[in-house]
């Protein structure tokens, strides 16, 4: 098999004539001159890591390489894990999704965008010792959104959030999902929810100061209604503000200065 893309090709292009090649093959170390450097290095690495096997098996490997190099490297059993690209401390998150609508042999995950199917198969095998039959992958594009800066009247710029990659895996063995956590107190879910709510209210108040309100301010309405009721029922007596606000009272009585504007009074 000859490979077309010279830039990325894995195969050698044989510059030797057929006769030359036959001669070289008959010699014990002639294959080193026929195969390219990276292939020779691969065989040397096999021997160095004691993965080449017996001399007969080594001969078999070289025979296969001479016959068809790309086919040899396209079989995963021919390339041991030690001679692939090694990754030791990756930094990513793989999320296992709860998809009860899928058959029991299927599991689906959110994976990093740069993952491919070979990556994920190796990852599941090495980390979780899970055998995989088949993988489907799908990149989900996100919709265009607009930036909303708090406190600005002008509309923000448009942008598209990053896409997400989903992989659905067909496993060798069926599985059962773990039970859902019902008690979320160890994760402080209540404080988290409270904070969320507070943040939302803060954001609303801020936006009310700058933008025309979308929702009516129900709290203010309620408080006005309550005050009106109290006045009507005689529970509160109306007084002018200089009497009801203590600082103002003191200023009007002449016992203290005005707190707001110094030197005027």
């Amino acid at each position: 098999m000859r490979l077309w893309n010279a830039h990325r090709r894995v195969f050698y292009k044989n510059p030797l004539s057929y006769q030359n090649r036959l001669e070289l093959q008959s010699q014990p170390d002639g294959w080193r001159q026929i195969l390219t450097e990276d292939v020779v290095k691969f065989v040397d690495d096999l021997k160095a890591n004691r993965l080449a096997g017996t001399p007969e098996q080594q001969k078999q490997i070289i025979k296969q390489l001479l016959h068809n190099t790309p086919r040899f490297f396209s079989r995963p059993k021919n390339v041991p894990l030690e001679l692939r690209k090694q990754v030791f401390l990756p930094n990513f998150v793989v999320t296992f999704m709860r998809t009860p609508h899928l058959p029991p042999k299927y599991a689906s995950f959110w994976v990093p965008l740069w993952f491919n199917k070979l990556d994920f198969k190796n990852y599941l095998k090495n980390v979780y010792n899970v055998d995989v039959l088949h993988i489907r992958s799908y990149v989900q594009q996100s919709k265009v959104e607009r930036e909303q800066l708090p406190g600005s009247r002008t509309p923000g710029r448009l942008f598209r959030p990053q896409a997400r990659k989903k992989m659905t895996v067909e496993l060798v063995d069926p599985f059962i999902y773990p039970e859902e956590e019902k008690d979320l107190s160890p994760w402080e879910s209540e404080t988290f929810k409270k904070e969320l709510k507070q943040n939302e209210e803060m954001f609303k108040e801020e936006s009310r100061a700058t933008q025309p309100p979308i929702d009516p301010d129900l709290k203010r309405r309620e408080s006005i209604a309550q005050q009106a009721q109290e006045f009507l029922q005689g529970r509160q007596r109306w007084r002018p503000s200089w009497q009801s606000i203590p600082t103002d009272t003191r200023v009007m009585q002449g016992t203290s200065r005005s707190p707001g504007i110094r030197g005027t009074i």
Binding site: P76, R84, L118
Partner: peptide
Amino acid sequence: VIDYRKARNY
């Protein structure tokens, strides 16, 4: 054609 020498091992 996949070249398994290029595949990553975690």
